[in-house]
């Protein structure tokens, strides 16, 4: 069982890049919106959203420790499993449903994304890009699943069971009928990859990606 997928945000990129990732997500959210953060970890993003955007935020988190930290921050967070519990949320309950650095730990990412688009008017998904050139290089040259400073898990004990590339995620969005309103990739320095470049550049140089989606 993945215990704390959010710890990956730190594991996959430098703290500065993580910060930019969260800040970018926060900037996508309209002030005062109702937000559900799926896999909210210790509540850092929800707190950022509450402080910067004045949102009415809720969270779901698998780990009991994460929930306790969130509760102590004054956040409303439920201990639960997004793979199971999202089905119980009513339609259109939130303005935004956020899945930050967690989709790769879901058992059924497609079902989760469909629920997000049902529960929220918009969905925001950020994830590590498995198509990044350094990961491709690891696999291509060493012939082993990448285990690096930024990706510290061996294949047999990783919580990340469904890695995808940016291109893969775009295909999933098409598959579930999601409309992409915005999409940004960040390079390993945490800088946005220029929007004007073609997809294959994003897919090669983006270390993480953030998508703002809505139901078609």
């Amino acid at each position: 069982m993945p215990t704390d997928p959010r710890s990956l945000a730190g594991a996959l990129s430098s703290p500065a890049a993580t910060r930019i990732d969260l800040l970018f997500v926060a900037d996508l959210v309209e002030p005062g919106a109702r937000v559900l953060d799926v896999g909210c970890g210790d509540g850092a993003l929800l707190q950022l959203l509450a402080e910067r955007r004045g949102v009415d935020g809720r969270g779901i988190e698998l780990s009991r420790e994460g929930v306790s930290q969130c509760v102590a921050r004054g956040l409303s967070v439920i201990q639960g499993d997004a793979d199971i519990d999202l089905a119980d949320y009513p339609d259109d309950a939130f303005d935004y449903v956020i899945l930050s650095q967690t989709i790769q730990a879901m058992r059924r990412p497609r079902v989760v994304l469909e629920h997000m688009l049902r529960i929220g008017r918009r969905a925001i998904v950020s994830f590590p890009n498995f198509g990044h050139w350094r990961i491709r290089l690891e696999l291509a040259l060493k012939g082993r699943m990448p285990v690096t400073e930024n990706l510290p898990y061996s294949w047999y004990d990783t919580p990340n069971i469904h890695f995808c590339t940016i291109r893969d995620f775009v295909a999933l969005c098409d598959g579930v009928g999601a409309r992409m309103e915005r999409a940004v990739a960040f390079d390993s320095g945490g800088q946005p990859v220029r929007v004007s470049v073609p997809w294959w550049v994003w897919n090669l140089f983006g270390e993480q990606a953030v998508f703002l989606l809505r139901r078609n």
Partner: peptide, 8 residues
């Protein structure tokens, strides 16, 4: 506004 924790 609800928080929930299951304690081991």
């Amino acid at each position: 506004s609800v928080s929930f924790v299951e304690i081991e």
